[in-house]
């Protein structure tokens, strides 16, 4: 098959539902711009550009999963949340999805709101909630950071895959009836394995950045004030 499609294609979800999610995504992204501006300074802005470019690159790298006939690729929500924060992170993934839809013919333009909702919004939000929780309970070590990145990335992919099920339930173009639960299970199962790949890529990337420039990892930066009692929060990551 010549086409290398990675996201929801045209015709899979009906027009009205796609339009509703486009409006929802637009409103949420506007909120991300407004709130994200507070995080965006001279240091974070170029970093966010790099994160977007890096996610674009790694999304091209489909890796095989459990069965021979199925592949997966990075979604990038947890990675972006970890490196540049949830608000700017959601915008990073959205930039990637817009470029893919408008330039590379990947993911229908009419389906853009759905793809942004699942991968940029749900994926990043789920990832960040877990990141915020795990960084508080896990030890401030390289291993703690790696586990945080791995688990939050894995779960973010599974949750994002269920966003599609919600959308398909609302506006899927094939009436699956009670088979929707089957589709949900198939999606969750496949994305559990994809999540392992996502987790490994996210953990490797975040730990590498934390070794070279710990100040460029947003999740660690945000932690410092909250972790006031014990000093040297960042030092433990080296």
């Amino acid at each position: 098959m010549e086409t290398l499609a990675m996201h929801i294609s045209n015709g899979i979800i009906n027009g009205p539902v796609a339009a509703i999610f486009a409006a929802l995504a637009l409103a949420t992204l506007t909120a991300c711009v407004l709130r994200g501006r507070r995080d965006l300074d001279d240091r974070l802005a170029p970093m966010a550009g790099l994160v977007a470019a890096f996610i674009f690159a790694v999304q091209m790298l489909n890796f095989p999963i459990f069965t021979a006939g199925v592949s997966g690729h990075l979604l990038g929500g947890a990675l972006a949340a970890m490196l540049v924060g949830p608000w700017v992170g959601a915008l990073c993934v959205s930039v990637v999805l817009v470029v893919q839809a408008l330039v590379f013919g990947d993911g229908g333009v009419a389906m853009l709101g759905l793809n942004i909702t699942n991968m940029a919004l749900i994926g990043t939000a789920a990832g960040y909630l877990l990141i915020a929780l795990l960084l508080r309970v896990l030890p401030r070590t390289s291993a703690g950071l790696a586990v945080t990145a791995f688990v939050s990335a894995l779960m973010s992919v599974v949750v994002a895959s269920q966003g599609f099920i919600l959308e398909y339930w609302l506006g899927g173009t094939t009436d699956l009836g009670s088979n929707l639960a089957g589709l949900a299970g198939t999606m969750a199962g496949a994305h559990l394995f994809i999540g392992i790949g996502e987790g490994l890529i996210t953990a490797t990337t975040v730990v590498t950045v934390a070794k070279v420039r710990p100040d460029l990892v947003y999740a660690l930066r945000g932690l410092r004030p909250a972790a006031a009692p014990t000093v040297a929060a960042v030092g433990g990551v080296r």
Binding site: M6, L61, S161
Partner: peptide, 24 residues
């Protein structure tokens, strides 16, 4: 790093349908 991944390594990526497409 991103340029090397997208410019070279991507040619070794799996060409099978991804989790979403295969589920559909």
């Amino acid at each position: 790093v991103a340029l090397v991944l997208a410019g070279v390594v991507c040619n070794y990526a799996s060409s099978h349908p991804d989790g979403l497409d295969s589920s559909l």
